[in-house]
Amino acid sequence: MQSGAAQTTAEGKTLLKIQDLSFRYPGESADELGILALEGIEVDVREGEFVSIVGPSGCGKSTLLSVVGGLVSGFEGSVSIRGEEVRKPHPDIGVVFQEDSTFPWRNALRNVEFGLELRGVPKEERRRRAQEILRLFGLEGFEQRFPGHLSGGMKQRVAIARTLVLEPEILLMDEPFGALDEQTRIILGEELLRIQQELRQTVLFITHNIQESIMLSDRVVILSARPGRIKAVMDVDFPRPRDSTLISSTHFAELVGKIWAVLRDESLKAFGQDSQKKEANNA
């Protein structure tokens, strides 16, 4: 029955459609070309689907998320949500950013309450909901702490909680577990999946952790070195709900091997790009 649930979501309608998307960062001056970050990206994400994006550092993953989030303009191609072109941030989208995005002037609890506050949720209720999600994220007892007195991983958890508490229909997450240790990463991954399944959220999830991408997603999109193009797409057909014992299965190892084979070449290329540039600069 559980695999049946995954089946229906897999057959759901397209929610997010990215067609022939290219994006170039503007150069320093008018006559300079700037950096081509993305080229010819095509992805369809179905309602309730969990899609991961992996790719070498600097290949344009965060850029892709900014475009989908409506945070940058001037891209080529088309990005649409439920058939509507994305021109500005869509109200149904919640974003978790790669860098620390907590408000240093608010304690953990009031950070998480922020969005609820703006939506006019009564104080009692928003406090209860914020406390509840902080507890789920292992931050009970840290509600009154300010980000300056939290560890990197704790701050990241506060930021994730701040977005999740709003229960957005579409979640864009940029390496949300990047600052976490392996154990916390797995626990929070399971927590995220539980919430995602419960709310039937559609998720675009950026990670550099291959295991994590397989654990969580229905599909893994592998990007090439810059400019980011789609190198491969892998379907992950493990039934849901999943748990971390999956990691020891042979099919899991196979998938890791397949993704790594593609990613390895691209990572080496990305590495070469950077060192070549350095040499050019030195010369």
């Binding site: 989030g69 974003v95 703006l118």
Partner: peptide, 27 residues
């Protein structure tokens, strides 16, 4: 002011006034 915080404001669809009061000013 950290560009990330401004991105948070944008992604949450804050009005110009709210962005100023809740993000720019305290930051």
């Amino acid at each position: 002011v950290s560009p990330t915080l401004l991105k948070v404001a944008a992604s949450m669809n804050l009005s110009t006034r709210d962005r100023f009061r809740y993000i720019l000013l305290p930051a």
